[in-house]
Design a protein around this nucleic acid. Sequence first.
DNA 1: AGCACGCCGACT
DNA 2: GTCGGCGTGCTC
Length: 716
Amino acid sequence: MTLYADVVLPLPLDRPYTYSVPPEQTHKIQVGSRVLIPLGKRWLTGFVIRLKKKRPDPKLKYKPIAEVLDDTPFFSPAILSYTERLSRSCFMPWGEILQAAVPPSMLPRTRAAVSLTPGGREALEQGTLSTEERQVVALLATRPHSPLFLQKKVQAKNFPGLLARMQKKGLVIIEKGLKRVSRRKKGELSTVPAQLELDFSLDDGLRKAAGPILEVIAKQTFSPFLLFGPAGRREAVYFHLIREAVARSGRVLYLVPEISLAPALIDKYKRKIGDGLAILHSRLTDRQRELEWQKIKEGRAEVVIGPRSALFAPLSDLRLVIVEEEQDESYAQQEGLPFDVRKAARIRAEEEKAAFVQGSEAPTVESFYSARKGRFLIDLGRETAAANVRLLVFRRASGLIDPRLKRAIQDRLEKREQVILFYNRRGYASYLVCALCDHVPHCDRCDLSLSYHKKEGKLVCHACRRAVPAVLDCPRCGGRLIVRLSAGIEAVAEELKTAFPEGRIEVFAADEAARKEKKDALLRGFEAKEIDILIGTQSLGRQPGLSPVYLAGVLHPEMILHLADFRSGQKAFLLIRSAFGFLQEGERSEVYIQTSAPDHYSIREAARGDYLGFFEREIKLRRLLDYPPFCFLAQVFFSGEKARHVAAAARMFVSRVKSSGKNVQVFGPSVASVARKRGLFRVQVSLKTRRLETLNGVLGPSLKGIRSGKSIFLFP
DNA sequence: AGCACGCCGACT
DNA sequence: GTCGGCGTGCTC
């Protein structure tokens, strides 16, 4: 009797395909196996999610699986159900999620390779080629390349057509080959130390706080926790929990916002845990990724540390999932697959029956709210703040930097001490501000400043999409509204250079430090005291391990408050708090906050270091304005090369949502705030619902079949 | 996603 | 007349 296998493929398909299992492979195939299958004209690696004894549809002809690639199941049942749930919650095909969980080298598939024919070589010498053709031929002179690689290198408006013509002319040939996985020798299993050689001196308070989590780890059930407290205490608890989990031969997934946070951590852990640590992140080479993956798969890693990509670590016996710095925005970033790391981590913990521990000194209000409501908040207490905080009420016309802050910097420089400053240059947006009274027009429904859309002459609210014609008179005092463009961090650096010509000043911004070498150079330079003043955007706030300073400054955190984002209060709070993280301990340390909104609760409470004070104000506002966590928001982006197609997709989506009969508020479609990004048109639709199920129930069907570079942000 | 099929405009 | 652009639909 023939066996049939449901196989999910790494393609945008919404259902598995069924293949027949050749008799000689039936003993090998299992749910969770990788299989090499034919699809149309190509070969792909798919994943078995179900085995059936009965032929599902007698009329359909099923192709046989070409090869079962694994002797033992490649994916555990827990990983399968986790990725399935994840795919449903982020509206991505299951197969594409599974694909992301595997090192690319372990996914054989047919790949095209373009190579030069002798005729092509000759043509290059004779110079009878068009510009485009010559480019292609030159690239192929050394070795064959994939069509995709060539397309990226050669500027041609219709590259596939060009290639086809060249093949016809006999200049190149395109071959399709199956790239097989090289059967690597299995690494021998290293013995895992039964006990960590480590003295965990956890004080009574922390031990007590960790108690409920330990219970959950022991019981092997899922339960969420929010560790609320200073980094040092959180870490002590993590170590304690990890030791306990590992002692029970459990495994641990430790998520950090970005790789830059990992090295310090990894160092510590390597000294304490030794080899039982694996690291997964997107900058690994294919080979490194495969080695780490193997190590984890074979059970040689007790703890996996990493950002987003670690979410799919093939750990078994997972007992503890940690999300450190829960508040970090980069968890919500959508590079690659569009999902929130925190939500994914939670689903994984649920499916693996592991304790789910998020940690932060200033959690997102959504998370803090639900932790308190659900009684899974673990308060590790506050550190007594020793720093002196000075709120400088900024006066216009005194340059970008307040004279009082300049004097403080001068003082430090004379003492040969370093200074760290924060200035969060706002992105593209400019807004209107009254030249007389500093009034900034806000959306009356959203409590957000309106963005000035110059081209359309409109003021637009980015939350509710409402647009009003831009008026140039201040509604408050009748003064003239002027366009305020963000003074960038470079301008601030320039002013610093003028003020301190002797000072060595460097800028640390996300774009500046995009390349790792540049970033490392800046950080090393600061460490080596080759930099006197380091001024950075919020991205600097995530760089741990810099030598602490006695003076840190935050310039205009209120800029964030003008952002069209209902979480701007939280963001401003975090920016200010991140400055405190760089301070030398002791009473000599100072933080200067230069702001024109000293009375805003985000700024005031951040200056006081009072998260709870901030939270109470913020949650009140969220409730009043009906923002998360009191509602559920989805922001759906459609993007594509053709504006017409993108718009049609968005309109189709909106009409489906509206005719669903569900209780959903729809805003849009409207041109996204960044209307064109990388040559793609972007259109945006926002949905708001009272219940999460409503949102999920309406999103799935409404997005069906819409293939327009959609990406979805869900709040909370 | 690829890849085939099928339908319209401009040229060897 | 063909070639090749692009929109549509299918792949077990």
